[in-house]
Simulated scan of single mutants.
Amino acid sequence: MRDPITIITTVRDGDAYRDRYFSNLRQILVGPGDHAVIVDDGSTTPLTTPSDRLNDPRLKIIHPGKIGRGASLNLAIENSPTDLIAIQDIDDLSLPDRLDRQVDVLCNNHNQLVFARAVSDPWRPTLAALQHFSPARLYFSNPLHHSSLAMHRSVWASAGGYATDLPCCIDLDFYLRACCVAKARISRLSMPLIERTLDPGNRHFARIPNALYQKTRASVLARYRPDLPWSIWLAAAKLRELQLFSARDVR
């Protein structure tokens, strides 16, 4: 019997995915002690539990008003009845084996962030069932899906929780702080265990102005760069920055 885990979801105006999301929870919350904690971050129409799940003690919805995504994530984790946490966006789906496989990895080592691939990810050959990523890899690009993250509460606590003062890049900031401050390891299961909604009109990321995103990302990366040893990823990211800078000069 595996250890219990809690699905954490933050949402604002996600009614279009409500029924599908709760149906997915029914499929994946199969372990004794599994729970789901949902924080409604100020939806126009407050999120409610479907009528057939009203008396399900494993589900908890919190309505704190508009407190922001970082604060909502922290509130959800604070209210989790288990030490193991799995993030899931309301518009994404977890496949049946996701929680079992991520719990297995976390039980071997609590001090890691465990991700999974998505069904829509390009196929790439790999021999390892579990891949490990240097945090410096995130300076070149981010191949990780926050909606697939699982971790132990101790990593979140040691890292100081999610930032509440950033307009975006909250996930990136947390990954880097977990590695630099909590000394956590980034791992990713090679098999696809989530199904993502790819319509850009429904993705929070797509609604962020590009200038704001680029400015915030640069600030986050600069904050943790001094804590990382030199690596080929940092060198590649720096080279790309120089190339983009030169291209702007030419125009």
Results as ranks from 00 to 15, higher is better:
residue 102 Q to M: 07
residue 130 L to H: 09
residue 119 V to I: 13
residue 97 D to R: 15
residue 84 L to D: 02
residue 48 T to A: 13
residue 147 S to C: 06
residue 45 T to D: 12
residue 94 S to P: 13
residue 88 Q to E: 03
residue 60 K to A: 08
residue 134 S to D: 06
residue 151 M to H: 11
residue 91 D to Y: 06
residue 96 P to E: 03
residue 166 L to A: 10
residue 172 L to T: 09
residue 147 S to E: 02
residue 97 D to L: 14
residue 142 N to Q: 10
residue 183 K to V: 02
residue 57 P to T: 01
residue 109 N to I: 00
residue 77 I to M: 09
residue 171 D to T: 11
residue 112 Q to P: 08
residue 47 L to T: 05
residue 62 I to Q: 09
residue 160 G to I: 01
residue 170 I to K: 15
residue 139 Y to S: 03
residue 110 H to S: 12
residue 175 Y to T: 01
residue 47 L to C: 05
residue 130 L to V: 12
residue 129 A to F: 15
residue 60 K to S: 11
residue 50 P to I: 02
residue 104 D to F: 09
residue 79 N to G: 08
residue 83 D to Q: 12
residue 84 L to Q: 08
residue 57 P to W: 02
residue 136 A to L: 04
residue 53 R to D: 07
residue 70 G to S: 02
residue 154 S to C: 04
residue 148 S to N: 06
residue 69 R to K: 15
residue 110 H to E: 04
residue 136 A to K: 12
residue 71 A to R: 15
residue 51 S to A: 12
residue 85 I to D: 00
residue 174 F to I: 00
residue 165 D to F: 10
residue 100 D to L: 09
residue 135 P to K: 09
residue 182 A to H: 12
residue 67 I to S: 03
residue 112 Q to N: 04
residue 86 A to N: 13
residue 160 G to F: 05
residue 97 D to W: 14
residue 57 P to Q: 03
residue 113 L to R: 10
residue 134 S to R: 14
residue 147 S to A: 08
residue 85 I to C: 07
residue 164 T to E: 07
residue 177 R to D: 00
residue 119 V to S: 09
residue 115 F to G: 01
residue 115 F to A: 00
residue 64 P to R: 14
residue 126 T to E: 06
residue 87 I to V: 10
residue 177 R to A: 06
residue 125 P to S: 08
residue 61 I to K: 11
residue 115 F to V: 00
residue 161 G to H: 09
residue 167 P to H: 10
residue 96 P to C: 04
residue 174 F to T: 03
residue 176 L to N: 05
residue 134 S to H: 13
residue 173 D to I: 03
residue 78 E to Q: 14
residue 45 T to L: 14
residue 46 P to G: 05
residue 46 P to W: 04
residue 165 D to L: 04
residue 82 T to A: 03
residue 175 Y to C: 05
residue 101 R to G: 03
residue 123 W to A: 10
residue 56 D to P: 02
residue 138 L to W: 10
residue 62 I to N: 08
residue 103 V to N: 07
residue 47 L to S: 04
residue 59 L to E: 01
residue 127 L to Y: 15
residue 144 L to D: 00
residue 171 D to M: 09
residue 79 N to E: 03
residue 131 Q to H: 13
residue 81 P to G: 04
residue 81 P to V: 04
residue 84 L to F: 13
residue 137 R to T: 11
